[in-house]
């Protein structure tokens, strides 16, 4: 499964949402279920799934499904 799709499925799973409702634009704070508690769980699940560690200075901007997928690509290629 490609990175975008896997990240989308992880976010949907953590938020308990139908994956059809989750898009790359789905963002924390704008989607009722995605609060800071879920955010911590999502960051942890995505890093664990791809075996990566996001740099602390990047966390601030990782607020959407698309941004998380982009970050996975960036860290994996570094």
């Amino acid at each position: 499964m490609e990175i975008d799709e896997e990240v989308r499925m992880i976010v949907a799973g953590e938020l308990g949402l139908d994956p059809a409702l989750v898009t790359p634009e789905t963002a924390a704070g704008e989607c009722r279920e995605w609060d800071s508690v879920r955010m911590v769980a999502i960051l942890s699940a995505v890093q664990s799934r791809f075996g990566v560690q996001f740099p602390e200075e990047d966390l601030f901007d990782l607020v959407s499904v698309g941004a998380l997928a982009d970050e996975v690509r960036k860290v994996k290629s570094a």
């Binding site: 704070g29 995605w34 607020v63």
Partner: peptide, 11 residues
Amino acid sequence: LLGSFANLPLF
């Protein structure tokens, strides 16, 4: 009113 703290750039 703001959704939550999850999206700090928004906050």
